[in-house]
Design a protein around this nucleic acid. Structure first.
Ligand SMILES: [Zn+2]
Ligand SMILES: [Zn+2]
Ligand SMILES: [Zn+2]
Ligand SMILES: [Zn+2]
Lengths: 137, 137
DNA sequence: TCTATTGCTCCAGAAGCTATAGGTTTGAGG
DNA sequence: CCTCAAACCTATAGCTTCTGGAGCAATAGA
């Protein structure tokens, strides 16, 4: 049996975050000690590590809840799990594409050398006028 | 004089968002009609377009507030504006780098063909075990 | 037994909006 | 002038994923 602090140390998930995950239904409400403190079994450690890893990879709480539910049924087909993962990959790729456009524009914008006045500053002028941009964003 | 709806149509910023920007101090509280409705001058149109463009480029409300304050002083040196922009560019680059790592891992993870069981699913196993990952994230 | 550490619940805040509820004003057509 | 729909008002809550604090209770080691 682990206390919430043990769990936190072993998984790197902060204590309030663990309680938050409980509230969000990612982990079950655990047994309590006589003094009402949470006492976890070893299996919760793995579950929490799974959650942490999935969060680190950017999956949403909702997706993780679904994946955890699926993982309770090892005999079922895994199409749904694969769908969640590849949809997330698509989302990540979209974000990258969008950020790259921003990067391009910002690269042009910051070409101002910083040695003149605000009135002449390319940063300020470029922000005031989107038509100076090379692509949509 | 423009109503808030006019301003919204011309800048593409939604009405509640304009009110929110007023509350956040990005635009000044405008004059009011006899019936207490907001009436804007033309200059607010440009200011709002500036804000919108800067938001589209991912700048924070705080940064935008600073940039707007700077732009009121065209005779001052522009080093601060340039610093804000290049710091933001650095942030964007960090995000891209991080997302690319995620993309790599997710690409490997979704290599599962979806035609077997959850128990054998690479997606599920990879999420359960970060040591299967090739880099930190 | 004493006390430092850890844990409890509840609540608020961060970022940048967005939506809803319940009411008032405006402006165009009749 | 009158009516009525559209637009506007304020205030508040919700979204997402945590994070931190207040105020108090339990636990564990010396
Ligand atoms: Zn400059
Ligand atoms: Zn632009
Ligand atoms: Zn699979
Ligand atoms: Zn990993």
């Amino acid at each position: 049996m682990y206390s919430i602090g043990d769990l936190s140390r072993r998984t790197g998930v902060k204590i309030p975050t663990i309680r938050y995950y409980e509230q969000m239904g990612l982990i079950a409400a655990p047994e309590r000690s006589e003094g009402n403190q949470r006492r976890y079994e070893k299996s919760e450690l793995e579950r929490l590590a799974f959650i942490r890893h999935a969060r680190d990879l950017g999956l949403s709480i909702d997706s993780i809840r679904d994946l955890l539910a699926l993982s309770q049924h090892p005999e079922r087909p895994c199409g749904e799990a694969d769908r969640i993962a590849s949809e997330h990959l698509a989302t990540v790729r979209e974000k990258i594409a969008r950020l790259k456009k921003l990067e391009q524009e910002l690269e042009r914008i910051v070409a101002c050398d910083g040695n003149h006045t605000v009135g002449d500053c390319y940063v300020i002028r470029a922000l005031a006028d989107h038509s100076m941009c090379e692509n949509e964003h």
